[in-house]
Each structure stands twice: as C-alpha cells, then as structure tokens.
C-alpha cells in the first residue's frame, strides 16, 4: 500500500511539475516580445550560452566524428563499401548525433550555468530585489537567457556537425585512404536538404526544451546552496532524458 501511495504521490508531483512548467513557459513567452526590444541582453546571452560553449562543442564534434570514421570504416570495409563512409557518417551526424550530442553537451555546459546563475540570484535575493524595484525578473533575467539558449543551440548543432564531418574526413580519407572524391561526392548526392532541415529542427526543439528546463529549474530553485545544487543536477538529468524522448518522437514524425 505504501508503495502504491508513493507511486501515486510521485505521479501527482510529476503532473504538478508539468503544469507549473507550462505556466512558467507562458509567462516567459509573454515577455519574449518585450525582451526583443533590448537585443543587447539577448546577444549577451547568445554569447554566454553559445560562444562560451564553442570549445567543448568543437572538441567533442571532432572526436565524435573521428570515432564515427573509425567505426564506420571498420564496418563498411567488411562489405567493400568504404566509399560510402562519407554518406553514412554525414547522415548519422546531420540527422542524429549532431543535434543529440550537442543538446547533451549544451545541457551540461550552458544549461547548468543558466540554472545555477538564476538559482544563486534567487538565493541571494537579487530576483526579489528586482521585483521590489518594479522590474519583472522574468522579463529582465529569464526571457533573455531563454532566448539566448534557443538561438544558440541550432548554431552549435551546425558547428558540431561541420566539425564532426571534418573528423570523419580526417580519419577516413587522411588516415585510411578512402578516396576523397568519392567521399565528398557520395555525401553531396545522398544528403538532401530535408536531412539538413531535420537536424536543424531537432537542434531548435532541443534548444527550446533544454533552455526552458534550465531557466525553470534555476528560477524555482530552493534558495539555499543545497537547493541550487539540486536544481543544477535536475537540469542535466531532465534535459538529457527529455532530449532522448523528443529525439525519438521527432525521428518518428520526420521519417
């Protein structure tokens, strides 16, 4: 009985959290038009969430591409199809690995930074001080950070994919001697605009979800050191799980 009661309570809390997040999203979206009136704040946040994540995104993109090159070559050479390495790797990166891995890295770098920054502002009364100065923290703090994340994610996804393809090329063409002309021409003929759109749409959706989770967790964090720590952890875990669930749903929709 206790287990059942606990399950029901968890379910109730889950539904309540979804409701609270939806209401929070409504408040944020209502402030988005006013946030666009001050583009400087958004550009600053695109820099924080995007430019400051570039090193990690590029490094990981390069090595994910390189590993894809190794594994792809190993697999394809068994069938004598090494020339298809470019196509296989590009499709994997553009449609799946690029958006998903970028979202996971984004949640770990920019998402945690957003959640802990907003949570600490809550814990040190900075958000309350803004409210007392008749400044809506949703408009001044949350909306620009949310938009910064939403705009930065697709850009990071594109960069990750580009660097990843470069990594595949380094391993496949430079290291294993796959024919360069076949590598690029097969990739160009097989990867269509729709595939690129799919990757970018996924990047946008994941960016929206991860940014929303980060700002929500930060804004609603318990105003203590422990509370901010928990909010940061929840940001990473929830973002990762939601990214993978959304990835399945989007893939099923766009197949």
């Amino acid at each position: 009985m206790n287990l059942l009661r606990e399950l029901l309570e968890n379910l109730r809390q889950f539904i309540a959290t979804i409701g609270a997040t939806t209401l929070f999203l409504g408040r944020v979206l209502a402030q988005v038009p006013r946030a666009f009136l001050r583009p400087g704040l958004i550009i600053e946040q695109v820099h924080n969430a995007g430019a400051l994540s570039l090193v990690i995104i590029m490094t990981c993109g390069l090595f994910v591409g390189a590993v894809l090159g190794l594994q792809g070559y190993d697999l394809l050479q068994r069938f004598g199809s090494e020339d298809a390495l470019g196509t296989a790797a590009a499709l994997a990166l553009v449609k799946e690995l690029g958006p998903v891995v970028t979202a996971l890295l984004f949640a770990g770098r920019a998402g945690t930074a957003l959640a802990s920054e907003i949570g600490l502002m809550r814990a040190t009364d900075q958000l309350t001080a803004m409210e007392m100065m008749a400044v809506d923290p949703i408009r001044r703090v949350v909306a620009p950070r949310f938009l910064g994340g939403v705009l930065a994610m697709p850009l990071l996804t594109v960069i990750f994919i580009a660097i990843g393809i470069f990594g595949v090329q380094v391993v496949g063409v430079q290291l294993f001697g796959v024919d360069s002309a076949s590598f690029w021409s097969q990739m160009r003929s097989s990867v269509g605009v729709d595939d690129v759109y799919e990757g970018i749409i996924k990047g946008c959706v994941f960016g929206f979800a991860c940014s929303l989770i980060a700002v929500y967790e930060g804004y609603t964090a318990t105003p203590t050191a422990e509370g901010v720590g928990r909010a940061t952890t929840r940001t990473v875990v929830t973002s990762a799980v939601l990214t993978l669930i959304l990835d399945y749903m989007l893939t099923a929709l766009m197949l």
Binding site: M121, T124, D125, Q126, T128, A129, E131, M132, M133, A134, V135
Partner: peptide, 26 residues
C-alpha cells in the same frame, strides 16, 4: 513599488555589474 524602496539584509546587489550600474539599474 515605484513608490517604495527596500534595503535587504545582504544588500542584494546584482553581482554581475559594478556599483555604478547597480545604482543606475532602476
């Protein structure tokens, strides 16, 4: 609240901007 001012126990200054910008904020 435009007619009220409040001083918090810890000051509650915005930590990412300097003293001048804190006072200029409102």
């Amino acid at each position: 609240r435009m007619r009220m001012g409040m001083l918090f126990q810890n000051g509650a200054l915005l930590t990412d901007i300097d003293v001048f910008e804190n006072v200029a904020f409102p």
